[in-house]
């Protein structure tokens, strides 16, 4: 038996919004420690990893490890039926091929029950090594979303350069080019508005903006976002999910080709 009750149901709605553009189908792994999910997009360029710890739920029970294959489109449709203030409960029998979702309005006068068919998914899981990154940048999440959206008007790729002075995002395209620079800013009143840069080594990497624009769908989950980068490894974009977990996106950089003779 699996059961998880989340008082702040809107969190689950936001998480779903943050996932659905990048993956169409994913397996939700339920264990006694919480819910987690790892999935690559179809082209194997990016990956999303979600963790929601058991202690973040009002009630959480998982007797046997479960892998629920979920069609993200169906999940979105059903979660749209939940109000923003609703309490959401997820339930599944160990051997069932269905997930039950219950939405309770805050005052308890309305209770909706939905049932969603699960799928048998055979997905590849990647082993992500723990690693130290040369640069780690924390900035307001809405700023990051804005930069990605703005630069996607200019070109398809963004070059992210991180030095001790700050972090620079630049794009080039047929019509011209654009650059946005963010400098460290520890004076901001609210912690979320601060820009902090921790760096051991300068880094410059190029990424396809369309993936970043999918990542920024998670903006509403958290006031700040953290980017971690090292040369020649995937970028990590991390959003905290309240104090119960996180959603991390990994994106493979663009690389120069060594097999091409020029």
């Amino acid at each position: 038996m699996f059961e998880a009750r989340l008082v702040q149901g809107s969190l689950l709605k936001k998480v779903q919004e943050a996932l659905k553009d990048i993956v169409q189908e994913a397996s939700w792994d339920c264990t006694s420690s919480g819910l987690s999910l790892q999935a690559m997009d179809g082209s194997h360029v990016s990956l999303v990893q979600l963790t929601l710890r058991a202690d973040g739920f009002e009630k959480y029970r998982c007797d046997r490890n479960l892998a629920m294959g979920i069609n993200m489109g169906s999940m979105s449709k059903i979660l749209k039926c939940a109000g923003n203030d609703d309490v959401i409960t997820l339930k599944a029998e160990d051997t069932s091929d269905r997930l039950e979702l219950m939405f309770e309005s805050p005052k308890g006068e309305k209770i909706s029950n939905y049932e969603m068919k699960l799928m048998d998914l055979d997905c590849e899981q990647l082993g992500i090594p723990d690693q130290e990154y040369s640069c780690s940048i924390k900035m307001p999440s809405h700023e990051f979303a804005r930069i990605c959206r703005d630069l996607s008007q200019i070109g398809e790729c963004v070059v992210i350069t991180c030095t001790k002075d700050g972090v620079q995002f630049s794009a080039k395209g047929d019509m011209g080019s654009g650059t946005v620079k963010m400098s460290q800013n520890l004076g901001a009143e609210k912690e979320d508005d601060q820009v902090t840069i921790e760096m051991t080594e300068p880094v410059q990497l190029t990424f396809a903006i369309k993936y970043l624009n999918m990542f920024t769908k998670a903006t509403s989950l958290s006031g700040s976002v953290c980017l971690s980068m090292s040369n020649d490894v995937p970028l990590v974009v991390e959003y905290k999910v309240e104090d119960m977990g996180h959603i991390k996106y990994f994106l493979a950089p663009k690389i120069e080709d060594e097999d091409n003779d020029d």
Partner: peptide, 16 residues
């Protein structure tokens, strides 16, 4: 166009 890297070249696929 510079080649887009693949995530599965950086992270190893774990045995299912």
């Amino acid at each position: 166009t510079s080649t887009q890297g693949r995530l599965d070249d950086f992270f190893k696929v774990m045995p299912s």
